[in-house]
Amino acid sequence: MSRAALLVLADGRFPAGGHAHSGGAEAAVKAGRVTGAASLEDFCRGRLHTAGRVSAALAAAAVLGVDPVRLDAAADARTPSPALRATARKLGRQLMRAARATWPSSELDALAREFPKGAHQPVVLGLAARAAGLGALDAAYCAAYESVSGPASATVRLLSLDPFDATGVLARLAPELDLVADQAVEAARECVDAGVDALPAASAPLLEISAEAHAAWAVRLFAS
Protein backbone atom coordinates (compact mmCIF):
# COMPACT_ATOMS: atom_id res chain seq x y z
CA MET A 1 0.00 0.00 0.00
CA SER A 2 0.94 3.62 -0.32
CA ARG A 3 0.02 6.05 2.42
CA ALA A 4 -0.05 8.75 -0.25
CA ALA A 5 -3.30 7.23 -1.52
CA LEU A 6 -4.86 9.04 1.46
CA LEU A 7 -3.95 12.36 -0.16
CA VAL A 8 -5.75 11.31 -3.33
CA LEU A 9 -8.86 10.17 -1.43
CA ALA A 10 -9.00 13.23 0.86
CA ASP A 11 -8.26 15.76 -1.86
CA GLY A 12 -11.14 18.20 -2.25
CA ARG A 13 -10.72 17.75 -6.01
CA PHE A 14 -11.37 14.02 -5.85
CA PRO A 15 -14.36 13.86 -8.23
CA ALA A 16 -17.00 12.50 -5.88
CA GLY A 17 -19.56 15.30 -5.79
CA GLY A 18 -18.64 17.08 -2.57
CA HIS A 19 -18.29 20.48 -4.20
CA ALA A 20 -22.07 20.86 -4.56
CA HIS A 21 -22.75 20.36 -0.83
CA SER A 22 -22.26 22.73 2.09
CA GLY A 23 -22.71 20.29 4.97
CA GLY A 24 -25.47 22.44 6.44
CA ALA A 25 -23.46 25.66 6.20
CA GLU A 26 -25.81 27.27 3.69
CA ALA A 27 -28.80 26.86 6.02
CA ALA A 28 -26.76 28.10 9.00
CA VAL A 29 -25.61 31.16 7.04
CA LYS A 30 -29.16 31.97 5.98
CA ALA A 31 -30.41 31.62 9.57
CA GLY A 32 -27.72 34.05 10.69
CA ARG A 33 -25.99 31.45 12.85
CA VAL A 34 -22.79 31.51 10.78
CA THR A 35 -21.64 35.05 10.00
CA GLY A 36 -17.85 34.90 9.90
CA ALA A 37 -14.75 32.95 10.78
CA ALA A 38 -15.52 32.61 14.51
CA SER A 39 -19.01 31.22 14.07
CA LEU A 40 -17.80 29.04 11.17
CA GLU A 41 -15.26 27.53 13.54
CA ASP A 42 -17.95 26.86 16.12
CA PHE A 43 -20.16 25.33 13.45
CA CYS A 44 -17.38 23.10 12.15
CA ARG A 45 -16.38 22.02 15.66
CA GLY A 46 -19.96 20.99 16.43
CA ARG A 47 -20.30 19.14 13.13
CA LEU A 48 -16.96 17.41 13.63
CA HIS A 49 -17.93 16.01 17.04
CA THR A 50 -21.38 14.87 15.89
CA ALA A 51 -21.86 13.99 12.21
CA GLY A 52 -18.09 13.85 11.67
CA ARG A 53 -17.53 11.50 14.57
CA VAL A 54 -20.27 9.14 13.41
CA SER A 55 -19.02 9.19 9.80
CA ALA A 56 -15.44 8.57 10.87
CA ALA A 57 -16.45 5.55 12.95
CA LEU A 58 -18.60 4.12 10.15
CA ALA A 59 -15.74 4.53 7.66
CA ALA A 60 -13.21 2.99 10.04
CA ALA A 61 -15.52 0.05 10.76
CA ALA A 62 -15.94 -0.56 7.01
CA VAL A 63 -12.16 -0.71 6.65
CA LEU A 64 -12.00 -3.25 9.48
CA GLY A 65 -14.37 -5.50 7.55
CA VAL A 66 -17.66 -4.96 9.39
CA ASP A 67 -20.57 -5.92 7.09
CA PRO A 68 -21.33 -2.79 5.02
CA VAL A 69 -25.05 -3.62 4.94
CA ARG A 70 -25.17 -3.46 8.74
CA LEU A 71 -23.15 -0.27 8.72
CA ASP A 72 -25.52 1.26 6.21
CA ALA A 73 -28.50 0.43 8.45
CA ALA A 74 -26.61 1.91 11.43
CA ALA A 75 -26.07 5.08 9.40
CA ASP A 76 -29.81 5.24 8.66
CA ALA A 77 -30.61 4.96 12.38
CA ARG A 78 -28.17 7.79 13.12
CA THR A 79 -29.58 10.07 10.41
CA PRO A 80 -33.20 10.95 11.24
CA SER A 81 -33.50 13.59 8.50
CA PRO A 82 -34.62 12.01 5.23
CA ALA A 83 -32.97 14.90 3.36
CA LEU A 84 -29.64 14.00 4.97
CA ARG A 85 -30.17 10.28 4.30
CA ALA A 86 -30.83 11.06 0.64
CA THR A 87 -27.75 13.29 0.48
CA ALA A 88 -25.58 10.62 2.12
CA ARG A 89 -26.72 8.00 -0.40
CA LYS A 90 -26.32 10.35 -3.33
CA LEU A 91 -22.78 11.22 -2.30
CA GLY A 92 -22.13 7.56 -1.57
CA ARG A 93 -23.09 6.66 -5.10
CA GLN A 94 -20.92 9.42 -6.56
CA LEU A 95 -17.97 8.36 -4.41
CA MET A 96 -18.57 4.76 -5.47
CA ARG A 97 -18.18 5.74 -9.11
CA ALA A 98 -14.98 7.69 -8.49
CA ALA A 99 -13.53 5.00 -6.23
CA ARG A 100 -14.26 2.13 -8.62
CA ALA A 101 -12.58 4.03 -11.43
CA THR A 102 -9.59 4.85 -9.22
CA TRP A 103 -9.12 1.66 -7.17
CA PRO A 104 -11.02 -1.18 -8.85
CA SER A 105 -12.14 -3.70 -6.24
CA SER A 106 -14.58 -6.58 -6.06
CA GLU A 107 -15.79 -5.34 -2.66
CA LEU A 108 -16.75 -2.00 -4.15
CA ASP A 109 -18.44 -3.79 -7.07
CA ALA A 110 -20.44 -5.91 -4.62
CA LEU A 111 -21.53 -2.88 -2.60
CA ALA A 112 -22.54 -1.06 -5.80
CA ARG A 113 -24.72 -4.06 -6.72
CA GLU A 114 -26.24 -4.20 -3.25
CA PHE A 115 -27.06 -0.46 -3.26
CA PRO A 116 -27.69 0.61 -6.87
CA LYS A 117 -29.00 3.96 -5.61
CA GLY A 118 -26.08 4.43 -3.26
CA ALA A 119 -25.02 3.37 0.22
CA HIS A 120 -24.28 5.94 2.93
CA GLN A 121 -21.16 7.87 1.92
CA PRO A 122 -19.01 7.00 4.97
CA VAL A 123 -19.55 3.28 4.35
CA VAL A 124 -18.45 3.68 0.73
CA LEU A 125 -15.54 5.82 1.92
CA GLY A 126 -14.37 3.02 4.20
CA LEU A 127 -14.47 0.44 1.42
CA ALA A 128 -12.77 2.89 -0.94
CA ALA A 129 -9.99 3.37 1.60
CA ARG A 130 -9.72 -0.42 1.91
CA ALA A 131 -9.52 -0.75 -1.87
CA ALA A 132 -6.78 1.89 -1.89
CA GLY A 133 -4.82 -0.15 0.63
CA LEU A 134 -5.41 2.34 3.44
CA GLY A 135 -6.16 1.60 7.08
CA ALA A 136 -9.00 2.35 9.48
CA LEU A 137 -7.30 5.44 10.89
CA ASP A 138 -6.76 6.84 7.38
CA ALA A 139 -10.46 6.43 6.56
CA ALA A 140 -11.45 8.00 9.88
CA TYR A 141 -9.23 11.00 9.19
CA CYS A 142 -10.69 11.37 5.74
CA ALA A 143 -14.30 11.28 6.99
CA ALA A 144 -13.58 13.61 9.91
CA TYR A 145 -11.80 16.09 7.66
CA GLU A 146 -14.59 16.04 5.08
CA SER A 147 -17.09 16.88 7.82
CA VAL A 148 -15.42 20.27 8.27
CA SER A 149 -13.70 21.02 4.95
CA GLY A 150 -17.00 20.99 3.05
CA PRO A 151 -18.69 23.64 5.24
CA ALA A 152 -15.51 25.74 5.30
CA SER A 153 -15.14 25.94 1.52
CA ALA A 154 -18.88 26.47 1.07
CA THR A 155 -18.79 29.38 3.52
CA VAL A 156 -16.01 31.00 1.51
CA ARG A 157 -18.46 31.09 -1.41
CA LEU A 158 -21.56 31.94 0.64
CA LEU A 159 -20.17 34.80 2.73
CA SER A 160 -17.25 35.81 0.50
CA LEU A 161 -15.24 34.90 3.58
CA ASP A 162 -11.50 35.46 3.30
CA PRO A 163 -10.23 32.02 2.22
CA PHE A 164 -7.21 32.40 4.52
CA ASP A 165 -9.59 32.74 7.47
CA ALA A 166 -11.44 29.59 6.43
CA THR A 167 -8.19 27.67 6.12
CA GLY A 168 -7.14 28.97 9.52
CA VAL A 169 -10.35 27.50 10.98
CA LEU A 170 -9.46 24.08 9.59
CA ALA A 171 -5.91 24.32 10.92
CA ARG A 172 -7.14 25.23 14.40
CA LEU A 173 -9.43 22.20 14.39
CA ALA A 174 -6.52 19.85 13.62
CA PRO A 175 -5.95 18.62 17.20
CA GLU A 176 -9.65 17.81 17.51
CA LEU A 177 -9.56 16.00 14.17
CA ASP A 178 -6.79 13.82 15.63
CA LEU A 179 -8.95 13.12 18.65
CA VAL A 180 -12.08 12.31 16.64
CA ALA A 181 -10.15 10.01 14.28
CA ASP A 182 -8.63 8.12 17.23
CA GLN A 183 -12.01 7.79 18.97
CA ALA A 184 -13.55 6.59 15.73
CA VAL A 185 -11.01 3.80 15.31
CA GLU A 186 -11.50 2.76 18.91
CA ALA A 187 -15.27 2.58 18.42
CA ALA A 188 -14.80 0.75 15.12
CA ARG A 189 -12.62 -1.90 16.79
CA GLU A 190 -15.27 -2.35 19.46
CA CYS A 191 -17.87 -2.64 16.71
CA VAL A 192 -16.01 -5.59 15.16
CA ASP A 193 -16.85 -7.70 18.24
CA ALA A 194 -19.83 -5.96 19.81
CA GLY A 195 -21.78 -5.02 16.67
CA VAL A 196 -22.89 -1.69 15.29
CA ASP A 197 -24.50 -0.53 18.55
CA ALA A 198 -20.95 0.22 19.71
CA LEU A 199 -20.67 2.95 17.09
CA PRO A 200 -21.14 6.53 18.26
CA ALA A 201 -24.56 8.11 17.68
CA ALA A 202 -23.73 11.76 18.36
CA SER A 203 -26.56 13.94 17.14
CA ALA A 204 -26.80 17.58 16.13
CA PRO A 205 -30.44 18.71 16.33
CA LEU A 206 -29.91 21.92 14.37
CA LEU A 207 -28.17 20.13 11.49
CA GLU A 208 -31.09 17.69 11.27
CA ILE A 209 -33.81 20.33 11.51
CA SER A 210 -32.25 22.84 9.12
CA ALA A 211 -31.43 20.14 6.55
CA GLU A 212 -35.19 19.64 6.17
CA ALA A 213 -35.79 23.37 5.81
CA HIS A 214 -32.96 23.70 3.28
CA ALA A 215 -34.24 20.82 1.16
CA ALA A 216 -37.51 22.70 0.71
CA TRP A 217 -35.98 25.98 -0.45
CA ALA A 218 -36.76 26.95 -4.04
CA VAL A 219 -33.53 28.90 -4.42
CA ARG A 220 -30.21 27.68 -3.07
CA LEU A 221 -26.59 27.48 -4.09
CA PHE A 222 -25.82 24.07 -2.60
CA ALA A 223 -27.59 20.73 -2.84
CA SER A 224 -27.36 20.28 0.96
Binding site: V34, D42, G46, R47, T50, L207
Partner: peptide, 12 residues
Protein backbone atom coordinates in the same frame (compact mmCIF):
# COMPACT_ATOMS: atom_id res chain seq x y z
CA UNK B 1 -19.00 17.83 26.33
CA UNK B 2 -17.16 17.77 23.00
CA UNK B 3 -16.71 21.24 21.54
CA UNK B 4 -19.35 23.01 19.53
CA UNK B 5 -22.33 21.54 21.44
CA UNK B 6 -23.79 24.99 21.99
CA UNK B 7 -22.72 26.27 18.58
CA UNK B 8 -24.56 26.82 15.30
CA UNK B 9 -24.49 23.16 14.21
CA UNK B 10 -25.86 21.57 17.37
CA UNK B 11 -27.93 23.67 19.81
CA UNK B 12 -27.16 27.26 18.78
Amino acid sequence: APGGWDGPAVLG
